[in-house]
Nucleic acid binder design. Structure first.
Lengths: 188, 188
DNA sequence: CAGGCGATGTCAGCGACTGCCATCGCGTTA
DNA sequence: TAACGCGATGGCAGTCGCTGACATCGCCTG
């Protein structure tokens, strides 16, 4: 049992989610997370900037996926259509991870500190989307607004998807939300 | 020099904004804020829940103003029209506070921790707006989406308004953003 | 003038986070 | 094969945000 078990970062993330579920985020200390992963508190902070970040490791990849899909949309597609293509790609990436997504979502929803972190991740995503749209020739403020709208559609759709009783695909729920936004905002 | 100078809470807020501007949020300790206000660290935490909250004391009033205006919109007004009325009311409340708004905004924009707090305040505002719209008979997900869109319009408009070189009224900039959103999302 | 009461001060302590240095395990190279 | 470099980890001390418990102060009321 060497000092270096493989995948220290992943073990920390797994231990953290477990403990946050079991006894709550605030009642869990970093030392406890590290202990369950067979590491020390100091090492935890070498892998994750803070106690919250351990739940948000995948967001960079999600952003990359979203922006790539938007950039790859047909050149003649309207901004909102390009965003819709990005939403499809992101939704597809959640296939087979429903249970993980649910557990993670409810931990975050239960803690104000974690919701704050989630919101800034989504804001960063919106910024990246806006930049991608600008690169497609969309002017401001349309680029920023369309990006914000796209993220809002994803967030609200995601929340509906993880709610108990919902059994449709994530993509389907998100599509419905996008249609709802068009109706609500577009109708004069 | 009694123990109780008037308006301890206001003095703390003033001292905090000054220090955050002078040397930055992270380089300022709560003890320093309290010291400048002639109080102790412990007393700071009796007035504000944490070091961030001292910059967000006005948000509750802003939310009240916004939702009241939405609720007071003509019954036959479409959801987005009611939100537009709320935006007008909120914009008007910034009259004469341009300089304060600017200083506060740039401090927040410069610090990730403060941006997080701002985002959750805006999210709370969006929730309250959605609830107000539902009370007007707007169904989900239109209520939530319209509320999100309204907050995004305000935020983006506000950012443009505080930017150097901008000399129009806040209300005017926000109106322009709302029109931009309609065009971007409504155009199929 | 006594007592109540709210605002403040004092103190001890926990937990998040950081800097610094020592240690360990592995691969490279002479 | 032995010395070396190097990245990952541990240990430790220290700062700071934040909290609970208790004492103190000043005002107000009876």
């Amino acid at each position: 049992m060497s000092r270096w078990q493989p995948d220290a970062k992943g073990r920390l993330a797994k231990a953290a989610l477990e403990l946050y579920c079991e006894r709550g985020y605030e009642q869990t200390t970093v030392a406890e997370i590290a202990g369950r992963a067979g590491l020390t508190e100091r090492t935890f902070f070498r892998h994750y900037a803070d106690k919250r970040e351990v739940l948000f490791d995948g967001t960079a990849a999600l952003q990359e996926l979203f922006t790539s899909a938007v950039a790859a949309a047909p050149e003649e597609a309207a901004p909102i259509e390009a965003v819709a293509a990005g939403l499809e790609a992101v939704c597809a990436s959640f296939a087979g991870r429903t249970e993980f997504a649910r557990r993670r979502h409810f931990v975050i929803a239960a803690t104000a500190e974690l919701r704050e972190r989630e919101l800034i991740k989504l804001a960063t995503l919106a910024s990246a989307l806006a930049a991608t749209l600008r690169r497609r020739g969309v002017p401001e403020p349309a680029a920023g607004l369309t990006a914000e709208a796209g993220v809002a559609v994803f967030r609200i759709g995601f929340e509906r998807w993880v709610a108990p009783g919902e059994d449709r695909e994530l993509a389907q729920v998100v599509r419905e939300c996008l249609a709802g936004l068009r109706t609500a905002v577009g109708a004069a």
